[in-house]
Amino acid sequence: MIPFGTPRGILLLGLMAASLSACGTLSRLSDVGRDPAMTPTQDPTKDPKWRPLTMPMPTARPSPNEANALWRSGSRAFFKDQRAAQVGDIVTVLVNMNDAANLKNVTSATRASSESAGLPNLFGLEAIVPAAVNPSKLLSASSGNSNVGTGQIQRTEAVTLRLAGIITQVLPNGNLVVAASQEFLVNSELRQLKVTGVIRPQDIASDNTVQHDRMAEARIAYGGKGQLTDLQRARWGEQMMDILMPF
């Protein structure tokens, strides 16, 4: 077994990382001289990473039949509901997040201690102690410790998105699983927006929109790739050195 703390182990880790990043490097090299390719429009459920979502469900209750009544229990409109309700329907997801946090912490600790011990008299045996040794000052020790720490966190985030998603599942209790994805290609920079989550039909507004804070298990991603994104990302070699270097 090769210890990874040795130069040979670090070299082995470097070779492993290089082999793992080869596919990503070849993919980036294939985009040299042209804009990043956009993902073709496709069924979200055909994505290899897509998995059906299961959630805790209440006990199913049969809907009672009302004699001589045109109203169906659970309906939100008498004639027709224009809001998304079935697999394949489209619903617009509104993301309006404005979050800020400010945290400051200061700690200070100081400690000083001293110890001394002596044996001036011990049954007359102090007479045989060499003159260079003072029995009353056999031991003396002192210590001091001081620690000061200061930390501050300031964070401000503002994200405003509006994108259409597709109902991919209708759960047994009526909740809807939504998957939304959009891509924008601007000046060789590909921006990708993705939102997934679970919503209640009653949270869909009359204009067929739903707010992100009404979405359970929400996953919101905004990123992209391109020449500017590559310049802002540290090279894989630098990332390895940051992880492996102990100094």
Rank of each mutant, 00 (worst) to 15 (best):
V93M: 07
E157N: 05
V106F: 00
A109W: 01
V106I: 12
A132Q: 12
Q82M: 08
K137G: 03
V91F: 05
R76K: 07
K80G: 05
G149C: 01
S136E: 14
S140T: 14
V148A: 01
A67V: 03
R61P: 00
V133M: 14
R72W: 01
I153H: 05
P64C: 04
D81N: 11
T107L: 10
L163Y: 04
G149A: 12
A112N: 09
V106Q: 14
A109Y: 02
S114N: 11
T156S: 12
I128Y: 08
Q154C: 00
S73V: 13
S143V: 13
S114M: 09
V159G: 00
S73F: 09
R76H: 06
R61M: 10
T156Q: 07
F78W: 09
L138H: 00
F123T: 07
L122D: 08
E126W: 04
A131P: 05
N145A: 15
L163D: 01
V159Q: 12
N68P: 00
M97T: 06
M97S: 12
S63D: 06
S108Y: 06
A101M: 06
R83Q: 01
R155D: 06
A132D: 11
N134G: 02
F123K: 13
L163V: 01
N145F: 14
E126G: 13
F78A: 06
K137R: 15
K137F: 09
P130C: 12
S63E: 06
L125A: 15
Q86E: 08
G144A: 13
T156A: 08
S140H: 12
G151W: 01
I128K: 15
N65A: 07
A100K: 09
V87P: 08
L70P: 00
M97Q: 13
N98H: 12
N145S: 15
F123L: 15
T110K: 15
V159L: 15
N96P: 03
I128C: 05
L103S: 13
A127N: 15
T107D: 11
I153S: 09
T110C: 02
S114E: 13
T156K: 06
R83E: 04
Q152G: 14
N105D: 12
D99S: 06
S116P: 03
N105H: 11
R111K: 10
A109Q: 10
S113A: 15
L122G: 02
G74M: 03
V95M: 03
S116M: 08
N96C: 03
Q152R: 13
A164T: 08
M97L: 11
N105I: 11
S75N: 15
E66A: 07
G149M: 04
V106A: 12
R111W: 09
S114A: 15
A131I: 04
N134A: 12
V93F: 08
N147Q: 12
A84D: 02
T160K: 05
D81G: 04
A141P: 02
S63G: 02
F78P: 01
L70I: 03
I153M: 11
A164V: 01
R162Y: 00
S108M: 13
E115R: 12
I153Y: 05
K137P: 05
L139F: 15
F79M: 07
P62C: 05
A158L: 05
N134S: 04
N147A: 15
V106N: 13
A127I: 04
A109F: 11
L119T: 08
K80S: 07
A131V: 10
V106L: 10
